[in-house]
């Protein structure tokens, strides 16, 4: 995939970091403000897609990225399921049991497991969307060769 002009590259260098930071904020504050794992994960994936579209790399690097992205996707789903299953072992025997202490309403560290669920789902959604994009781009590159 070819990169774009130098103006686009410089601007996306500046912007992508800010988008990434905003995505992390949305994921971490999911239980206090609008947002959460789904929205934050999609925003994080948008930052990665912007980088790939602006700079453009050769096919070997893209394949390497795709493998790592799909690894992270599996890890995110696994973390989500493990957090839910731990409820069987600790406390009452309920799936999706919120076994951590709740804390004060409105604090950043509160709501027990919900921030951890948010982080796991955020990683999963981000990696899934990025993998889809990379798979389509790799297909296009292999076709045009």
């Amino acid at each position: 995939m070819k990169g774009m002009s130098i103006i686009v590259k410089k601007v996306s260098q500046l912007i992508a970091g800010i988008i990434f930071l905003y995505g992390i904020y949305i994921v971490l504050h999911g239980h206090l403000t609008p947002g959460g794992g789904f929205a934050g994960g999609a925003i994080l994936a948008g930052a990665f897609i912007l980088i790939v579209l602006a700079f453009g790399t050769d096919i070997i690097h893209l394949k390497h990225d795709e493998e790592r992205a799909s690894l992270f996707e599996g890890l995110g789903l696994l973390a989500f399921i493990l957090l839910a299953i731990l409820g069987f072992i600790i406390g009452i025997k309920v799936f999706f049991n919120n076994y951590l202490p709740k804390g004060q309403l409105g604090e950043l560290v509160s709501a027990g497991l919900i921030p951890l669920y948010n982080i796991a789902v955020g990683i999963e959604v981000c990696a899934a969307l990025f993998t889809i994009f990379l798979a389509l781009v790799i297909y296009k590159e292999e076709i045009s060769k």
Binding site: G30, H31, G36, F80, I81, L105, A111, L113, I114
Partner: peptide
Amino acid sequence: VTGSANLVTGVVFDFRGYDTLGEAT
């Protein structure tokens, strides 16, 4: 019950956790 100020997040990850698990799958 959930300790989360955002009620939508509370419903998604606590009361309706199975839906979210299905979505991730």
